[in-house]
Design a protein around this nucleic acid. Structure first.
Length: 219
DNA sequence: AAGAGGATGAACT
DNA sequence: GTTCATCCTCTTG
């Protein structure tokens, strides 16, 4: 049995991030600002909360690493063209559901991929979903595993994180992060993007154990 | 209609 | 370090 650091129901009292947080024209800035925020989900009365510790920014049309590079519209990328504050969830490798936050305005395909979180509440539920019996970084350090732990799936693609009845949302809990504690690096798994693969658009909380140990993550 | 490959993770050697 | 699970999406024909 795993005890939570914070009672799950406490998160219901924290203010949700509002639309304006997500509608910034600068997706890179939002990727940094998301570090330290808390992702909360509530499915079947199970409340889970986890601090965002690693993010990556993707920005159409110029960024070739972005699914919507050159403003390419397909059934999948259509969600990225929604207004800031929607969830973009897609399947990679036929196995993993990756959770992104859409930013900026409608018709601009910008998004932040949440790559790792630090569990705070609902840890028993997360362990069950992951099929684990003890807490280790494997629980939520990585974009695929965190979605599974938090109960996020492709059916949540396009949902509005700002809607009052959304089962997925983000909150601010007063956590402070000094700029010098934001680690910058290149994005993972985007070698196909040529020069854009070198953009320093991956951000993480320096020294945090829950940051993913992805291949080619470099630092 | 078919084929290739992916914003990963786990289990190997 | 390497392999492979697994299926949706996009490209090509």
């Amino acid at each position: 049995m795993q005890s939570d650091l914070i009672p799950p129901e406490n998160w219901l009292d924290h203010p949700r991030l509002t639309r304006c947080f997500y509608t910034s024209a600068d997706v890179v800035a939002v990727a940094k600002k998301l570090l330290g925020k808390v992702l909360v989900t509530q499915f079947d009365q199970q409340i889970c909360a986890a601090r965002v510790v690693e993010t990556e920014a993707y920005r159409a049309p110029d960024d070739q690493a972005c699914h919507a590079a050159n403003n390419r519209r397909t059934a999948r990328t259509e969600t990225m063209f929604k207004a800031g504050g929607h969830a973009y969830v897609y399947l990679v490798y036929g196995l993993h559901h990756l959770f992104n936050v859409v930013t900026y305005r409608e018709e601009a395909a910008h998004a932040v991929l949440i790559r790792a979180v630090e569990p705070l509440s609902g840890i028993t539920t997360m362990l069950e979903r992951r099929g684990l019996t003890s807490v280790k970084t494997q629980l939520t350090a990585g974009p695929g595993v965190l979605s599974k732990a938090m109960g996020i799936y492709r059916r949540h693609d396009g949902s509005d994180l700002c809607a009052a009845d959304s089962p997925i949302w983000l909150v601010e809990d007063g956590h402070r992060l000094a700029p010098k504690n934001i680690q910058t690096g290149t994005r993972v798994g985007v070698d196909y993007a040529g020069a854009d693969a070198l953009r320093p658009w991956r951000f993480s909380i320096r020294g945090n154990t829950w940051v993913s140990k992805a291949k080619g993550s470099g630092r």
